[in-house]
């Protein structure tokens, strides 16, 4: 018997996803996608995956949603500047009724095939849960997900931190920060006082929450990703409202902060190799401390990376960007 709540949740998720994907108005689609992400976090809780729920709410729905919304804002601004009153109509891709029908039929066929394979999955559920449980005591942490992420499969996580750095290098290589977009409000002297007050209030709370998530990750749901996501959220808030005390670090420090996670992760791994152990083979008794060290650096880098990804390009040398206070104090 399936609980009614699960059925309701799944129906709502599928409906939201469909509405988000067919919406001609992209703004509507993105808002529906954010709602979809929040419900998804609820689904993860139902599936007893609180770590994922935290990450989904912060990254999957929150920061991804913010990225989409700021992109739409920039697109509209470009269209306005190009003199397009209305966004250009979306050109149909697969022309004609038959094309659309064939695409739909093909997708349904593929989905049905996949669904059949899932339906026919063998009942005896194998998995590595027992293997993780058996070695958990040696991992240096007592939370199983953190043990997998930063010890048993730490190499995956190392490469993944590399993916984050690739993303920022790529974004910096492709585009310059469109800083006027971000600072438009502040330049007009019109960051509403409520917003400033909220940011002044929330950012310290978010810093505390990030620290708490980082610390608690060793024993309970939480860890570097969730903490980094909260830091990233705080960074986005700062970019949008630029309170007088917030200053973008100099580019040298920015680079160092972005690379810190990979640097410390790889450094610890290689130091262990030099000490005659294997890559990321923590010595007994040291595992917990080394994991916390790596996680702290990774948290910092993830937070900074997510913030700067939201900025959407390399901060240029000539812009007032590096010191955020610059324009804020003008009347």
């Amino acid at each position: 018997m399936i609980p009614a709540l699960d059925i309701l949740l799944i129906v709502a998720l599928l409906w939201l996803a469909r509405q988000a994907l067919v919406a001609r108005d992209l703004f509507k689609g993105v808002v529906l996608f954010i709602a979809f992400g929040l419900l998804l976090a609820l689904a993860w809780v139902r599936l007893r995956a609180p770590d994922i729920a935290l990450a989904e709410a912060a990254i999957g729905s929150g920061l991804t949603g913010a990225l989409f919304l700021s992109t739409l804002g920039r697109l509209r601004r470009m269209e306005r500047e190009a003199g397009q009153a209305e966004p250009p109509p979306e050109d149909g891709r697969r022309g004609g009724w038959t094309g659309g029908f064939l695409t739909a039929a093909g997708t349904v066929l593929v989905t049905a095939l996949l669904g059949w394979a899932v339906w026919a999955l063998p009942a005896g559920a194998p998995g590595l849960g027992d293997a993780v449980q058996a070695r958990l005591g040696e991992s240096g942490v007592s939370h199983r997900v953190t043990a997998v992420l930063l010890n048993f499969r730490a190499y995956d996580t190392l490469l993944e931190v590399g993916v984050l750095l690739v993303a920022i290098v790529a974004v910096w290589a492709v585009a310059r920060a469109d800083f006027p977009f971000v600072t438009r409000n502040a330049e007009a002297g019109s960051v509403p006082p409520q917003q400033t007050a909220l940011v002044n209030l929330l950012v310290p709370v978010m810093l505390v929450v990030a620290g708490y998530l980082l610390w608690i990750g060793a024993t309970a749901p939480g860890g570097a990703f969730q903490a980094g996501a909260v830091l990233g959220g705080a960074g986005v808030l700062l970019l949008l409202s630029r309170p007088h005390w917030a200053v973008l670090p100099e580019r040298r420090w920015m680079r160092t902060g972005l690379a810190a996670g990979l640097l410390v992760f790889l450094g610890v791994g290689l130091a262990l190799v030099i000490a005659g152990r294997r890559l990321l083979e923590y010595p007994a008794g040291w595992a917990g401390a080394l994991i916390l060290l790596i996680e702290a650096a990774v948290t910092l880098s993830i937070g900074l990376t997510l913030t700067l990804l939201f900025l959407g390009g390399r901060p240029a040398a000539g812009d007032p960007a590096p010191t955020m206070t610059h324009t804020n104090q003008q009347p």
């Binding site: 007893r48 990450a55 991804t64």
Partner: peptide, 23 residues
């Protein structure tokens, strides 16, 4: 008790997804 390995894989996947989306 939920298998932690897929959880770790999904956490990795979410971070990869947001990087790819941003780019």
């Amino acid at each position: 008790t939920p298998d932690p390995v897929p959880h770790a894989l999904v956490l990795t996947g979410i971070v990869v997804a947001v990087s790819a989306t941003a780019l």
